[in-house]
């Protein structure tokens, strides 16, 4: 199943890309699965930027001690906060926007 990932601002810097099509192997993939796949391609750095290990959730707020910025993940323009967070299901053709 394929989704389009748009790398905005900080994520443009991390990946060097503007957007790309990512293929996910799972039958019912989630945002979490997508991030895992991005980790395989771009390394742990992108995973750490997106997920706060203290909450196990998206880095919605900055961590001043760790010097980590807040980020946003949007699925078709809607922030994951209003969906199902990292467990938000993805379907063929979805657009996932990452920015921070």
């Amino acid at each position: 199943m394929k989704v389009e990932v748009r790398y905005l601002l900080m994520f443009h810097r991390l990946t060097g890309k503007t957007k790309e099509i990512i293929e996910l192997e799972q039958s019912n993939p989630t945002v979490r699965d997508l991030i895992s796949k991005l980790g395989q391609i771009y390394g742990q750095q992108i995973v750490d930027a997106l997920i706060d290990p203290k909450t196990g959730d998206v880095r919605y707020t900055p961590d001043l001690k760790e010097n980590k910025k807040a980020v946003r993940i949007l699925v078709n323009g809607r922030m994951t906060w209003w969906l199902n967070g990292l467990d938000t299901k993805l379907k063929e053709g979805d657009v996932v926007q990452l920015f921070g």
Partner: peptide, 19 residues
Amino acid sequence: NDLFYELYSRYGTAGLTTI
């Protein structure tokens, strides 16, 4: 550490066009 720091400091308000 603000959510919008990178946007403003690196891209200027032009970054808002993206968002």
